[in-house]
Design a protein around this nucleic acid. Structure first.
Lengths: 198, 198
DNA sequence: TTAGCTACCGAACGATCGTATGCTTTTAGC
DNA sequence: GCTAAAAGCATACGATCGTTCGGTAGCTAA
């Protein structure tokens, strides 16, 4: 007779499942997260796992949502204290890079899922696109603030700058995750400082 | 009685399989290429498909090899005619971007496989790393030539520049493949021109 | 002519996939 | 104390996974 959980712990179980899915997806990709594997890893039955979500796609979306929320809690939230404009954006990118370099989650979850689903239309792709757009919009808004404040030249091409800053992030992710290059964070910071005219 | 193929056509069949695998992998990732699916797509049996390679991993490696060769034939080869240094490198990046923007193959095969396998040690990861390193080495060599020729400042940090150029390529790939942004190639070219001091 | 080699097929293997159904157990509200 | 909801388990389903095996058609060399 195993000890049973109270219904109030349902949300906790759901969180536990998603947490485990995040770990697995970091290594194997979102499509590599299998219900059977989750069940084994968590010591529960497949039905118990999927019962919380209904379908695998719903589980993928929930996992993605959790990753996005985690990112938002960590990166923009920690930069919120800095001065709007260049300061805040620099801080945000620093946090992003530190987040990618952290042990545990393999690089940037959003980036890898974006690559995994960029050729597969569907709700997952849509969700990834929406999340990345939010990040781009955030960066663009801070850049416009910086232009208005005179910290960046008035003729700054904001969209171009967002594009290039994103590229630095992607390069950092690859250097960290694939090449295991310890110099990557420093390189990324230097690139960003140059882009933001520091 | 079906018409039988001569033994001399074996290599052609192998090529056909790999070509099909490249197409499938562009949309679904290398792990998404299934022997059964290849067999269906090619109108042959699973045994006939896998017989040419022995193992799925061998098939993956062969597919990756083919993609690398295709890339080498297209990008550095077309830039070989340009003057060594900044000219040639600019040309190579232009070719890379045009290659990614081409319809048919979904973005940069190497980049997506790199993301797919960056957390999975093994021969595939090793092969991806080797291929990407060759590309980095190529870029670094051209940059050093440019420095020696005086087209770039003597204090140029070549590795940093390779890092940032790679980032522009990754950003272009994401913008093309995920965001379907038609302005991406132009943005990338502008970023590269600025990095190479044009 | 014949023996051997190669390419490929048809069939099957155990494993695992996602999903559905029907229990048992526990808890919450009355 | 009783009941309805639910969380989770056990089991099963059809499909597909990668791989193996034996057989056969067509070619080549002896």
């Amino acid at each position: 007779m195993s000890p049973r959980k109270s219904a109030v712990e349902t949300a906790a179980t759901r969180t536990r499942i998603i947490e485990c899915a995040l770990t697995l997806a970091s290594a194997e990709g979102l499509e590599g997260v299998t219900i059977g594997r989750l069940a084994t890893e968590l010591g529960m039955s497949k039905a118990g796992v999927i019962g919380h979500f209904g379908t695998k796609e719903a589980l993928q979306l929930a996992t993605l949502d959790a990753a996005v929320e985690k990112f938002a809690d960590r990166v923009p939230a920690r930069a919120a204290g800095a001065d709007p404009g260049v300061d805040r954006l620099t801080r945000a990118f620093d946090e992003w890079i530190a987040y990618m370099a952290d042990e545990g989650h393999g690089g940037c979850f959003l980036t890898s899922v974006a690559t995994e689903f960029d050729g597969r239309p569907g709700p997952v792709r849509d969700a990834v696109l929406a999340a990345l757009s939010r990040w781009s919009d955030y960066a663009a808004a801070e850049l416009r603030t910086a232009v208005d404040a005179g910290d960046l030249p008035p003729d700054t091409d904001v969209d171009q700058l967002v594009f290039e800053l994103g590229g630095v992030g992607l390069a950092a992710g690859q250097a960290i995750q694939l090449h295991r290059d310890p110099a990557a964070p420093e390189r990324a910071r230097r690139a960003i400082d140059r882009l933001l005219g520091r």
